[in-house]
């Protein structure tokens, strides 16, 4: 065999392997979406035709709609809070001068490093000590803490590449600090803040492990409901609910990506 054919063979094998790895990564999500359109009573790949009856089922189920509402409220409020707090912290860490700045800033990232089970039990215990009610207050505060590192990282990296001469120019030309922030700094970093808020929403919307400790009866979120349903048996309603979750998360994540790349 000539070296040329060996290289070609190697190339083909490598390509086949890469295709397999991509299949491994993506097929599980694809199969969830595909089997949500089944006409049968269990998640099957539709062969004779598609049906939306499991989505209708979803719309008729008060418990699932309630979970969707709870998830939307918790994720929206916690995303706004974590965008505000994350931005303030990012400005402080980029612009402030104090010893061990880098080392201290890792504290801001701790919520994404500690196992969410530990976070969950620690928060639920703490919230009962400070008498914060379970349900919405606990969920919103917990999700704010969990999504904060993502906003912090995004806004911080935006501020690090930001040209401070623009601000100096504004000041030299006579604008006060407030006007400078409103017309120069704000507009430049606001796409990053919004991108951070969207990512915070995505993190919150999909969070399960810590959330299972923070819910109260009546404030189950979508991931918690999916998990509970999985334990009782497979029905395509789980698929329909998962697809709704996927669509919401992807739309927001893609918007976030668009915002942070412009």
């Amino acid at each position: 065999m000539s070296t040329r054919t060996t290289t070609k063979l190697e190339g083909v094998t490598f390509r086949a392997l890469i295709t397999l790895v991509f299949a491994f990564l993506l097929l599980p999500v694809l199969i969830v979406v595909l089997t949500s359109f089944t006409q049968q009573n269990f998640p099957a790949i539709p062969q004779e035709g598609v049906s939306l009856k499991w989505y209708q089922e979803l719309l008729a189920d008060q418990r699932l709609l309630n979970a969707l509402t709870v998830s939307l409220i918790v994720s929206t409020v916690s995303a706004i809070l974590s965008a505000i707090i994350g931005t303030i912290a990012a400005i402080g860490f980029v612009r402030g001068e104090f010893p061990y700045k880098e080392q201290i800033s890792t504290v801001m990232l701790l919520p994404m490093i500690i196992s969410p089970v530990i976070t969950g039990i620690a928060l639920v215990r703490y919230f009962s000590t400070i008498q914060l009610p379970s349900g919405f207050p606990a969920l919103i505060l917990g999700h704010t803490v969990l999504s904060l590192p993502y906003v912090f990282l995004l806004v911080r990296s935006e501020l690090l590449t930001y040209d401070r001469d623009l601000e100096r120019a504004s000041r030299v030309l006579g604008a006060d600090p407030a006007t400078t922030f409103r017309h120069v700094t704000g507009p430049i970093i606001s796409p990053a803040i919004l991108a951070g808020a969207f990512i915070a929403f995505v993190v919150s919307f999909g969070e399960f492990t810590a959330t299972q400790f923070l819910i109260s009866p009546g404030t189950s979120t979508v991931p918690v409901v999916i998990y509970t349903m999985l334990r009782t048996g497979l029905t395509p309603t789980i698929n329909a609910l998962s697809v709704v979750l996927i669509v919401v998360m992807l739309v927001l994540a893609l918007s976030s990506r668009k915002l942070s790349s412009t």
Partner: peptide
């Protein structure tokens, strides 16, 4: 600016680090 950083740290400290340490 230092105070802004402190605000972020305070939030994480109060609602994350402290609850974990209390375990």
């Amino acid at each position: 600016n230092r105070h802004l950083a402190l605000f972020g740290l305070g939030f994480v400290g109060l609602f994350f680090v402290l609850p974990i340490l209390l375990l």
